[in-house]
């Protein structure tokens, strides 16, 4: 495309976009620049910090993988089938995005607390929700499931129905068609949904705070250090956590991108 003349509107839009980017990047950059090497390595050596980062990464990953068992087939149903109240169901899926996360925590607490059916069942199986990893995972999953379901649903919707019909016509069972045609072809969207859900789970604070203050995930640790000791003390943990998240996020993006490139 040859741009013969600069359109003023484009300039204004670009300037607005630039301001927005600055708004996102500046605080993060400021935070990184304000932390000294010594403080950072001290934080990295702190077992409380590294333990909480490991806990956050793994519990969010666990929550994502467990939720995927239900979310991926459910997304296929939403993409392929028409049924009564489908719009309502789609709305329910999005609900966790719009309600305050502390409210989500309170709601979950009512279901998972000891004495409730789920809580009692958990106790009998040796699973502690309140103040336990299972509770952290439940809170993370609750608020981040919409990202996976929506991404996978869009991915399945983009798979031509005809390919699934062709596979059925060739004698494959519906499950085989799902596993060999639908999932591989929607793979890129599913991976992207998994990464989003995982990232969103890691950054959850409100809901987890209410269900399980301890063991302490990093967002709660940051909050605690800020509340007890102030900004200077909270910053190194924050920088370390954000850096780790970014590294994982970029790595997974690259893996997903390469995979779809091979398949495409």
């Amino acid at each position: 495309m040859i741009i013969s003349r600069i359109e003023p509107m484009h300039l204004i839009f670009a300037a607005l976009g630039g301001a927005l980017l600055l708004f996102i990047v500046a605080p993060l950059a400021g935070m990184f620049l304000n932390v000294g090497k010594a403080e950072l390595s001290e934080a990295a050596a702190d077992p409380e910090v590294t333990g909480s980062i490991r806990l956050t990464l793994l519990s969010s990953m666990g929550a994502t993988l467990i939720a995927a068992i239900g979310a991926v087939p459910f997304a296929w149903i939403l993409a392929r089938k028409d049924f009564p109240f489908k719009r309502l169901v789609n709305g329910i899926v999005d609900l966790p995005i719009v309600i305050p996360h502390s409210a989500a925590g309170i709601a979950l607490l009512g279901v998972l607390a000891p004495g409730t059916p789920v809580g009692s069942l958990g106790e009998r199986l040796g699973v502690t929700f309140i103040g336990g990893i299972a509770g952290i995972m439940a809170a993370m999953a609750f608020v981040s499931i919409p990202f996976l379901v929506n991404a996978a649903r869009d991915g399945f919707a983009a798979v031509p129905v005809r390919l699934e019909q062709a596979a059925l016509n060739l004698g494959a069972s519906p499950l085989r068609v799902f596993l060999t045609i639908s999932v591989p072809m929607a793979w890129r969207s599913i991976i992207s949904g998994l990464v989003l859900m995982w990232a969103r789970g890691m950054s959850e604070f409100g809901a987890v705070l209410i269900i399980a203050y301890h063991p302490m995930i990093t967002p709660v640790l940051i909050y605690e250090r800020f509340g007890a000791f102030g900004l200077k003390y909270a910053r190194p943990v924050t920088v370390l956590f954000v850096a780790v998240c970014l590294v994982f996020f970029l790595a997974l993006r690259m893996i997903a991108g390469r995979r779809s490139h091979v398949e495409g």
Partner: peptide
């Protein structure tokens, strides 16, 4: 569908 022995060839091959 998967039990019918009617093989179909589509216009766009699929």
């Amino acid at each position: 569908m998967q039990r019918r022995k009617l093989g179909i060839v589509f216009q766009d091959q699929a």
